[in-house]
């Protein structure tokens, strides 16, 4: 299998004054085109740092990120991010938030009318067309996250990066959005890298689960294949032995072998 996205021997050290902390050490990961990969690990182990390195928002100290065999070291719309706290611009409407990226990415390749249709199409994908003229302060948390997803999808990224996209949501909204993202992945076939804290979410959504050891100097402890067939149904999986086995593996990794140790 030829990797689409490749993390090649990545180390990350933060330096402030003479204090240096090695956060990530020797991260190697190959992700195929169209694959859904989750990264799971305890808080503070460096998951966001890893995602930011892929996004190009943070530089790696050693090693590099290759996308389609080309090194990427600055941020760009080919690796769109859905941030944990939605990060919509509060002075723009829902429509304008999506438009910001679309106007930039398709400035040359699409006409004004085509861009408008494309924005509405993407809002429609996440069922947010009805609120297109509202401002972020006027919609709920789940809706904001949907718009964040639409904004990222509308840039037609090669890789979609999700940093705990459902972390701040209540359980019902979260389940609903997970189903939406699963349906979108099924329909569009994006390559997705998602950070999560939630074991069920990881197993439900992913093709592979990357489990991180605790920091400092966190690295990839284990990679688990999730061979469940798609489309997956939340209710059917609840009793599926394969699902339960995968779930147990992740739980064992997190709570037995790499138990969270309080840093302070």
């Amino acid at each position: 299998m030829k990797p689409y996205l490749k993390l090649d021997h990545i180390d990350k050290t933060f330096t402030r004054g003479n204090a240096t902390t090695e956060v990530l050490k020797d991260i190697n990961l190959n992700i195929a085109r169209g694959e859904y990969v989750s990264i799971i690990g305890h808080s503070g182990c460096g998951k966001s740092t890893m995602l930011n390195i892929i996004a190009g928002l943070t530089g790696a100290s050693i090693g590099c990120v290759l996308l389609e065999d080309r090194e990427v070291n600055s941020p760009g719309p080919d690796r769109a991010v859905v941030f944990q706290n939605h990060s919509l611009l509060p002075w723009l409407t829902v429509y304008q938030n999506v438009q910001l990226g679309v106007d930039k990415v398709f400035a040359k390749s699409k006409s004004k009318a085509e861009r408008e249709a494309w924005i509405l199409h993407n809002l429609n994908l996440v069922q947010m067309t009805h609120a297109k003229d509202k401002r972020p302060s006027e919609i709920s948390g789940g809706m904001k996250q949907r718009v964040g997803i639409a904004r990222a999808l509308a840039m037609e990224p090669k890789v979609l990066l999700l940093d705990e996209p459902f972390g701040a949501l209540d359980a019902l909204t979260r389940a609903h959005l997970q189903d939406s993202v699963m349906a979108l992945h099924q329909k569009l076939g994006n390559t997705i890298v998602m950070i999560t804290h939630d074991v069920d979410e990881a197993v439900l959504l992913s093709d592979r689960i990357v489990m991180m050891t605790n920091g400092p100097s966190a690295t990839i402890g284990e990679v688990l294949d999730v061979p469940l067939t798609r489309p997956r149904k939340r209710l059917d999986l609840a009793t599926d032995p394969l699902y339960l086995k995968c779930r147990k593996r992740v739980l064992e990794f997190l709570y037995e072998r790499h138990r969270f140790v309080e840093a302070a």
Partner: peptide
């Protein structure tokens, strides 16, 4: 966060200033 959004969208400095 806003800076990150601008970076991902690749706004140029002038667009970053206005938008």
């Amino acid at each position: 966060d806003y800076r990150n959004v601008a970076a991902v969208v690749q706004l140029n400095p002038l667009e970053f200033f206005w938008k």
